[in-house]
């Protein structure tokens, strides 16, 4: 189920690049002519004030919104637009700003659902279950249990996620995305609404995922402290336009960024 262009991209090379992308809804321009790239193995932060078009950008990257203009190059393949299914099979996973878990399913089932694309026993084996389908199920269960251990959520394995507190839901959602074994992980405000301790935990997971699995991460975050610590490079959006791009230090001292955050008479 891999894309034919499976040229192994080494760390430091460009994994995904967005070129001159513009997106609008009716008359509202959400993104205007934005270009940036994400390099393999890095943690890339997308920041900006509310309504800057950050989430729309992620939606464009994994194919939920289709930009009117521009191109997306992922693993060397140039596309006018991504399709959600192509993005997923190509190895892009994501979490959502307002947790989008399968609420009535258990933690275990949610994360197992993340393995769907990697399971391939067909309908008739599934009907019989005993035999190949079950073996496959067990094999994937092992992987899922690894993720559960990694995220320290063993105790809520059998709890329907709708009943979990917000912080744990965010963690389960990360688990579900990790279950896809993605090459590029998009995190939409992974630490929003968390207390300090939970934020620290989440930071640790993000760093671990990046170090341990070598997963490339693009994240949207409002907490500047977190962004400055985590990210290798930061892209800043404001009113749908890119106003800065560079290392955390460069961005921090950029006048346009300071204006955007502190507000300046336009």
């Amino acid at each position: 189920m891999r894309a034919p262009d499976e040229t192994t991209i080494k760390a430091g090379q460009t994994l995904l690049s967005v070129q001159n992308v513009s997106l609008s809804f009716g008359g509202v321009k959400a993104i205007r002519d934005v270009s940036f790239d994400i390099k393999k193995g890095e943690i890339r932060a997308i920041i900006g004030p509310n309504g800057a078009g950050k989430t729309s950008m992620l939606n464009v990257i994994n194919g939920f919104y289709h930009p009117q203009e521009g191109e997306i190059t992922f693993k060397g393949v140039k596309r006018k637009k991504m399709r959600p299914h192509d993005a997923a099979t190509g190895g892009i996973a994501r979490t959502f700003q307002n947790v989008a878990l399968f609420r009535s399913m258990t933690t275990l089932d949610n994360i197992m659902a993340g393995r769907t694309l990697r399971m391939n026993k067909n309908f008739f084996w599934q009907l019989l279950r005993y035999g190949p389908a079950e073996r496959e199920e067990i094999e994937h269960r092992r992987k899922v249990e690894e993720i559960i251990d990694f995220l320290e959520i063993q105790h809520i394995r059998r709890v329907p996620v709708g009943r979990l507190p917000y912080g744990l839901q965010k963690r389960v959602e990360l688990g579900r995305a990790l279950a896809m074994e993605p090459e590029l992980l998009l995190l939409d405000e992974p630490m929003a609404g968390m207390n300090l301790e939970e934020k620290e935990d989440m930071c640790r997971y993000v760093i671990d995922v990046n170090n341990h699995y070598g997963t490339t991460i693009a994240l949207i975050e409002h907490d500047m402290g977190v962004v400055m610590d985590l990210a290798n490079r930061v892209v800043v959006l404001d009113y749908g336009q890119k106003i800065a791009d560079g290392t955390p230090d460069e961005v921090k001292s950029n006048q346009a960024v300071i204006d955007a955050y502190l507000g300046v008479a336009h």
Binding site: F64, A88, R103, M112, A113, L117
Partner: peptide, 17 residues
Amino acid sequence: RMWMAVRDMDIAAELMG
């Protein structure tokens, strides 16, 4: 699981492939 995923949150299910 696919069925239930579509029931509970179809958009997330779609983005998971």
